[in-house]
C-alpha cells in the first residue's frame, strides 16, 4: 500500500527545502459532508504540506472538526454521515472502497479534545496500539513504549510508575500520554482536535513545545480555538466559516495581512 511505502522516502526529502515546499501530504478536492440533511462541510479544496503544522481556526460549528475527522475517517461511525469529494493521502484516495480503515488509522493518528486515556496502566495505554497489531515481544514493546513516552516528553515523569493507572495522572500528563500512545503506532500524520482546550496554561505550553518538535517527523494538523496558539505553533493556518474555507495561507501572512474582511474580523476578535 502506498500509505505505508511513503514512509521510507520521507527521510531523504526532509532536508531538501525546495522539494518539500512543492510536495503535498494531503490533498482535498471539493469535500462535502452531510449529517442527515445538514450540510456541515460545503465543498472544501486544499493541500496540506508534509512536515509542517497546519492550524484550523474558526468559530464553533464552522465544520473544522468534522473536516479534520475526514482524514482518518472518524466520521464513518456517526449516524447519517455522508461525504462527497476526494481526499488523497500520499496520492491514495482514502475513501476508496479498497482502503482498510484500520490501516489508514495507523498512518493517521489522532489526539482528542479531552484527554481520553484508557482505564489501564500507563504502559498498557502506550502499548495498546502495538498489541492490537499483534506485537507481543516484550522487548520490542518495552523499547517502543519508552521511545514514545520520550517523544511525548513524559518519560522522566512516569518511568518509575509505568504500572500505575493512567487515570491517576494530571490532565496535562494524560494528554501527553495520549500523544505518546498515538506516536507509538508510528503514524506519519497526527490530527489534533483542540488538544489543549481542557488544560491549564503550563500544560498547554508543554504540549505546544512538543508539537513544535514533532513536526520534524510528522505532518500535524491542529484544530484550535486559541488564536495565539495558532500563530505560535503553526506554519499554515486555515480559517473556516460555516462549512466553508474562507482563507488559507502561511500563518504569518494570515495573521498580519489577511486577504478577506471576515478573516480579519475573526482574528482581531470582532466576532466569534
Amino acid at each position: 500500500m502506498e500509505l505505508v511505502a511513503e514512509k521510507n522516502t520521507k527521510n531523504f526529502t526532509m532536508n531538501k527545502e525546495s522539494e518539500q515546499e512543492s510536495k503535498t501530504k494531503i490533498s482535498i478536492k471539493n469535500a462535502r459532508v452531510w449529517y442527515g440533511d445538514f450540510e456541515a462541510v460545503k465543498g472544501i479544496s486544499m493541500d496540506i504540506k508534509p512536515n509542517s503544522v497546519t492550524a484550523f481556526i474558526g468559530p464553533s460549528g464552522c465544520g473544522k472538526s468534522t473536516f479534520l475527522r475526514l482524514f482518518n475517517r472518524m466520521n464513518d461511525y456517526i449516524d447519517g454521515f455522508r461525504m462527497e469529494g476526494k481526499i488523497k493521502i500520499d496520492g491514495t484516495n482514502i475513501y476508496n472502497k479498497k482502503i482498510h480503515v484500520e490501516e489508514l488509522r495507523k498512518e493517521v493518528g489522532m489526539v482528542f479534545q479531552k484527554p481520553n486515556p484508557f482505564p489501564k496502566s500507563i504502559y498498557e495505554n502506550v502499548a495498546y496500539g502495538l498489541k492490537i497489531q499483534g506485537i507481543s515481544d516484550k522487548k520490542v514493546l518495552d523499547s517502543r513504549v519508552e521511545k514514545a513516552l520520550r517523544q511525548a516528553d513524559l518519560w522522566e515523569e512516569v518511568k518509575d510508575d509505568l504500572k500505575k493507572s493512567a487515570l491517576a495522572l494530571s490532565g496535562g500528563q494524560q494528554q501527553r500520554l495520549c500523544i505518546a500512545r498515538t506516536l507509538a503506532v508510528e503514524p506519519s500524520i497526527i490530527l489534533m482536535d483542540e488538544p489543549t482546550s481542557a488544560l491549564d496554561p503550563i500544560s498547554t505550553a508543554k504540549i505546544e513545545n512538543l508539537i513544535f518538535g514533532l513536526k520534524e517527523k510528522y505532518t500535524i494538523i491542529i484544530v484550535t480555538h486559541n488564536m495565539q496558539q495558532a500563530s505560535r505553533i503553526s506554519d499554515y493556518t486555515a480559517f473556516f466559516y460555516i462549512g466553508e474555507l474562507v482563507e488559507y495561507s502561511k500563518t504569518k501572512t494570515l495573521f498580519t495581512k489577511p486577504e478577506k474582511k471576515r478573516t480579519e474580523n475573526y482574528i482581531t476578535g470582532r466576532f466569534g
Binding site: N72, M74, Y77, E102, E103, L104, R105, K106, G109, M110, F112, K114, N116, P117, F118, P119, K120, Y128, G129, K131, I132, Q133, C178, R181, T182, V185
Partner: peptide
C-alpha cells in the same frame, strides 16, 4: 463507556471487535 474511549481505540487502528473486547468490556 464514553465514546471518546472507543474513538481513541479506533484512532489507533483497532477494529470494532478489538475495541469491544480490549477497551469497552474492561472499562
Amino acid at each position: 463507556v464514553p465514546r471518546e474511549l472507543r474513538e481513541a481505540s479506533y484512532g489507533m487502528g483497532a477494529t470494532k471487535l478489538q475495541t469491544a473486547f480490549k477497551v469497552v468490556v474492561p472499562a
